[in-house]
Structure formats: C-alpha cells, structure tokens
Design a protein around this nucleic acid. Structure first.
Length: 648
RNA sequence: CGGGAUGUAGCGCAGCUUGGUAGCGCACUUCGUUCGGGACGAAGGGGCCGCAGGUUCGAAUCCUGUCAUCCCGACCA
C-alpha cells in the first residue's frame, strides 16, 4: 500500500475529547473516528489490526477444536424471557437495546448470545455422542453502557469473540475451560500483550468458576490484587485475604456481653469514636443500613455488620443478597445506602415507606429492632404535584410493580465482625455506644458471610508471608463455567449414556477484540506514538523515501517495495512528496514496527533500518536490509519474539 | 441517574467579564524557495458561534430552555 493512497489523516494536536494515551493515539494516528457516544468507525488502518487480532483468535480457537459460526444480532424477546434475563436487561437502565418490529414483536440487539446458542443447542444436540461441542463467533455486540468511555475501551458497539461450549458432564466442561484458559494465554501473548489471569466475579452472566484476563495498564478500569509469588491473583470484587488480627478490647466483656453504655455525643463515625476514646478501629463493629430493590418491587432493608477497620465489598454483598432472595423476587436491581434521599424517592411512589427519622443513625447496633420497619407509616403517596400513570394522558404506560417493604431486616455479618469476642458498637440510641458487647450477650446468632473488601497489603490465604499488591487492569477476556443455568431455563437437554434426559453443561468464553486492540496501544506506546507488536501491526514495514524528487531514491524504494510484496510482507511505501521529517513523524505515530529509510545513502546502495519500539537503527546495504527485514518480520509474526532481538 | 465541566472552521484554542456582526495556530488550495525529524514566504478557500426562545436599535457575548460531548460514581468484553 502506498501512503499517498491510504487516506491517512493524522492530527498534530491531541483531541480534547480523549483522555487516556491509547484513545488519543488512535484518534491522532487516524485509526478511529467517533460517530456517536460509544460508537466508532474503524478506519482502514484499525480494520487491518482487528483482522490480524481476529486471525490469531481464530487460529487458537480452531486449534482447540472449536467451531466458528455466526449468530444473529437481532434476537427475539421470547428467548430472553425464557432465560429470565429480558426484564433485567431491558428494564430501567437496562443494557440491552430493544425495539418492536412492525408486527409488534419485541426484539433486542444482542449484548451476548447465551440464549440464542442454547436454543440452537436444544434443537441440534440430542445425544452425548455429539458432545462436547464448542462454538464461537467474532461479531459486533451492542450494549447500552451507562457511561461509554475511553474510545474502544468501553463502547456501546464493539467487536467480541464469544464462544459457548456444551458438555455431557462437569469434567468435560472443566477440560474445555482449561483448554480455553490455555488458548487465551497464547492469544494474548501472540498479540504482544502482558496479561494476567485473575479470579473473577461471574456477574450478570452467572455460573460458578470464572476467570478474567487483565492487561495491566494504569488506565485500566479494574483493580486487581496479586501476590508476588504468582500463586494468587484476583479482581478486587472477588479477592479474599487474611484480615489483620484485631486488637483485643481492654476489659473484655462487660455486663455479660450486653455491653456497658458509653456517652458518645455527636460521635457518629469510626474516626470520631477512635479519636475520642482511644479505641482501635478493629475493636468496633460498624453497622451499615442499606436497601435492596428487586424486580418484583420487593424492598429488603439490610443490616450489615463489619469490623470497624474493614470495608464493604459491594459485589460480594449483592451476590449474598441475590442468593437469598432472587429466587422469590426476581433480579436484584440494586443496593443503595438507606438515605433520606432514597426514602424521599420511595415516598413518592406507592406503598409503605420507611420513617428514617426514627432510626438512631450513627448509633446503630447489630441488634437494631425490626419494629422500626413495621412501625413505618404508610406513604403519603401521590399528593401534591405527582402525576400518576392512569390519571393523566400516559395511561398506556405499564404500571411499575407495586413496592412491598419487608417487615424484617436481612442481617448479614462479615467473619471479621462475627469473630470478635468483645467489641464496641452502637447502642441503638442517640449519643450512646456500648463497650464490651458480644454476639451472645446481644442474643444474636449472626449469619456469617464474607463481605469485606480485600485491600492491598493484606496477607494472602495461601501463604500468610505473601501480601497482596494492587495494579490496574483492562479486562480483555473472561471465561466462565456456566453449569446448567441456561440449558435448564431454555430446555436444552440431551440423552446421556444411560438413556436418561439431562440438561447440558455449558461454558462461555469472551474476548473483547476491539478493546484488545486498544489495550495493545495502551501497553505499547511512547512519546512519539504507537509501537505495534509485529503480529497485530496494520503494516509490518514502512519504506520512507527521504526525498521523493530524487529519482534514484524513488526507484530504489519501488524496488524494495516490490521485493517485500513478493515476499508476502505487509508493506507500506511512503511516496508522499512531503519532507522527510513529516514522514518520520507519521511513521512513528502510526507505529509501524520496522522503518526502512531510503535517503542520501541510496546512491551507494545503503539504507537505514529502524526498529520502532526500541529506536535501534542501523545502516545496511540494500541486500542486507532486505534480508534483515524479512527475517525480523517473519520471526515477529508469531508474537513470541523479544523486542530488540531482531534488529540488533 | 447523581456530581463537575465544555460546546466558536476538519483539529487545538482565543474572543464572552464590559453586546457593535468573528480571530489565532495546525490542516486544506495555488505559486515560489526549501528538502534526514511535523520548513519559510506570498496569495486564497472554508464558520446556521450546538439548537430554540427571550432582552436589545443591535447578541458568539446577557437571560431562559433544550440538546450534545467529556470527566468522577453504579454496568462490563
């Protein structure tokens, strides 16, 4: 390809809308253009990168025996209703773009394809003899992200490789899961990425085991915790660790564990209590008051107890609450601190509400009386200027589910709090705390769940000599053992060896292809531009003619260009009439791994070879340069080379 | 959705406080001189000042509304 024909438009200034280096560089170097929020045009240069990434993904997936397919992007609501995900994915701030066709049928643009593929599996897979099967596709996905950002990093339309495997038993699922783990490691390595596999939360997809692949970069949206010995790595959402031991409470139990009242006027925070009375934060039990909202309108107040020096992990909490209540009340829509704002919002809707002013906020103890909930007054409802559906012109809108408030708290306690033999906690009355309380003394049997957030510096479970360190990560891949969640919901059954019908075991495996391309830039750039790894570079070598007017240089450049094309290299010829400096700047910016400069040495048959990533350069005779470039590119294509080794 | 900011030429910005009909750099076109790290000179083209109302003799500038974009939190490949 000739640069004069490449529609190359590079920018000298950083675009104001871009924040992180990879986003700026992709815009400046002419790889992407924004079309709408979270929606991008992949310009010819980027499309070549995406094709190369896809090719690597295909090779590695195919090598495991997976089958490539292509599923529809437009999917019927019916399938999603059967899996129980339609409401959760479309209602409110749902992530699924959905629409009605002219017959009035509801459809959604696929944010993921479990439903479609499982329905197909139900149709096609009948016998254990057909299993296992692993199907994948590389395709555009649509998610109406709450906040698209950082260019391709979190777009609303993006390219993803997703695979779904089907098995007759759990052991087979584990085998494929392990094969995917291996394939993913090779894929990221071949793409020139430094990625780590971390234990992950399964999130909205569901299932048991799951692992994320994180490209480490400061711009990453996730926090990952790793041990130096490499034995443990987890997303902070999921991470576990050994808490620091608590400091023993002087005096131990008082009044048999019921605790002794202590006047604590205005001391509503851990810091204030610690400061005023010389307590250690680890001697306190703090009680958090939250409200969980469910799909069917059920509202569950939560009373969460944590040791005073620990932080709540919201993901762990949501999982624990979901596990207890989602069966009866549908999808957990959210958990929010029970604040006056939230109560005011609830007051405006139907049903009963909570009288938060009756709560001794800042002085809550884990034995807070359920009576505070049943004593709540009926909501004043729709007086004033509130408009009701049905009483106005919007009668066609569906009624929101009627809210129903639980009469009891769901009380969950983190082990760090549950294990304290004697502690300080709120007395459930204003300006009073209790010292020397115990769970038994308060006549409580705590329901113990791991709810605390692991922190950098914590000791590891597998080896208490190891501590966790934090790093930012970009999630480029995620693999799940789904189990039977979707196959049971959608009736995907097969006949096993004993002639019995059984639901299929499933796994699913995603790679964000467009995100991966940007993550590669995030990890491979310098002050002058992108430094693409050879394996995914849009072009492998660029020939720069220092002075296009010099027929000697032009002719030599053309000869080299033809030679590389004949050798099957992806070669770019910068034949523009611009000055050499302009072409050097552009070559650095767009990040072509090898640059061959045909300049003043042309007359004596000498050219200059520069490796982009290392800036190493050498003067070579034409023949030696040809040989060096071809050799370097060929070895670089595997993605397994060490930068610098080729041009040295 | 909550909090913060910004919308002026393809890109980056000034002008707005104190209203008088739009400017700078880059990019683009033509000519000349340059020619190995984003050259110089000359001439030129390109703007419903996000949109809609309002105030005013007069609005990029003041007021109201609205839309869009970006940043910080909840979502995820």
């Amino acid at each position: 390809m000739r640069v004069s024909r490449l529609m190359l438009v590079t920018l000298r200034d950083d675009p104001a809308q871009a924040e992180i280096p990879s986003h700026k560089l992709l815009l400046r170097a002419g790889y992407i253009r924004r079309v709408a929020s979270g929606i991008y045009a992949y310009l010819p240069l980027l499309w070549r990168v995406l094709q190369k990434v896809s090719a690597i993904v295909r090779e590695e997936m195919d090598a495991t025996g997976a089958l490539e397919t292509l599923l529809p992007q437009l999917q019927p609501a019916d399938l999603w209703q059967r899996s129980g995900r339609w409401a959760g994915y479309t209602a409110g701030e749902g992530i699924m773009f959905h629409l009605k066709d002219r017959q009035g049928h509801e459809l959604g643009l696929g944010p993921t394809h479990e439903e479609v593929i499982t329905d197909l599996a139900a149709d096609l897979l009948r016998s254990y003899r057909q299993l296992p099967v692993n199907l994948y596709q590389i395709q555009t996905k649509f998610r109406d992200e709450i906040r698209p950002r950082f260019g391709l990093m979190r777009g609303r339309e993006f390219i993803m490789k997703d695979a779904y495997s089907f098995h007759s038993d759990e052991a087979s699922l584990r085998d494929t899961y392990a094969a995917m783990d291996g394939a993913y490691r090779r894929i990221f390595r071949r793409c020139g990425l430094r990625a780590v596999a971390v234990e992950a939360d399964s999130g909205a997809i569901g299932g048991s085991a799951s692992q994320e692949f994180m490209v480490t970069a400061d711009a990453g949206e996730d926090l990952i915790l790793t041990s130096a010995d490499g034995c443990y790595a987890a997303n902070q959402e999921r991470a576990v660790s050994l808490p620091t031991p608590p400091v023993e409470l002087p005096g131990g139990l008082r009044t048999g564990g019921a605790g002794e009242l202590l006047a604590t006027p205005g001391q509503t925070s851990i810091e204030q209590l610690v400061g005023a009375h010389g307590f250690e934060a680890s001697q306190l039990v703090k009680v958090l008051l939250l409200l969980a909202r469910f799909q069917d309108g059920y509202l569950q107040p939560l009373l969460i107890s944590l040791r005073g020096d620990q932080q709540l992990n919201g993901v762990k909490l949501a999982n624990a609450v979901s596990a207890r209540l989602a069966g009866d009340h549908g999808v957990l829509l959210g958990i929010d601190p029970l604040s006056f704002e939230l109560v005011a919002a609830l007051n405006r809707s139907e049903g009963r509400s909570i009288d938060l002013s009756a709560f001794p906020l800042g002085y809550l103890g884990p034995d807070l009386d359920d009576g505070l909930l049943s004593g709540s007054r009926p909501s004043l409802g729709v007086e004033g200027r509130e408009v009701r559906a049905g009483s106005s012109g919007v009668a066609a809108l569906p009624q929101p589910p009627r809210q129903q408030l639980s009469a009891k708290f769901l009380r969950l306690t983190d082990p760090t709090a549950a294990q304290l033999p004697a502690f300080v906690c709120g007395a459930n009355q204003i300006d009073r705390h209790r010292v020397g309380a115990s769970w038994q003394g308060l006549q409580l049997e705590p329901e113990v769940v791991d709810l605390r957030a692991a922190q950098p510096g914590d000791r590891c479970l597998h080896d208490s000599a190891q501590t966790l360190t934090a790093a930012r990560g970009i999630e480029v891949g995620h693999i799940f053992q789904l189990g039977k969640k979707y196959s049971e919901a959608l009736g995907a059954r097969f006949t096993n060896e004993s002639g019995e019908e059984e639901a299929l075991w499933m796994g699913c495996y995603g790679i964000g292809v467009s995100r991966l391309a940007q993550a590669a830039v995030e990890q491979n750039h310098d002050g002058d531009g992108i430094c693409w790894p050879v394996a995914i570079a849009p072009f492998e070598v660029i020939i720069v003619v220092a002075s296009s007017q010099d027929p000697l240089q032009s002719e030599l450049a053309e000869r080299l260009y033809g030679h590389f094309q004949a050798e099957g290299l992806d070669v770019l010829l910068d034949d523009r009439p611009d000055r050499a400096g302009v072409k050097f700047k552009d070559a650095d910016l767009i990040g072509i791994p090898y640059r061959l400069v045909v300049g003043r040495g042309a007359a004596s048959g000498v050219v200059e070879l520069v490796e982009r990533a290392t800036r190493q350069s050498q003067e070579l005779t034409v023949d030696a340069a040809l040989e060096a470039v071809v050799a370097a590119v060929r070895s670089g294509r595997s993605g397994l080379q060490v930068p610098g080794a080729a041009a040295g």
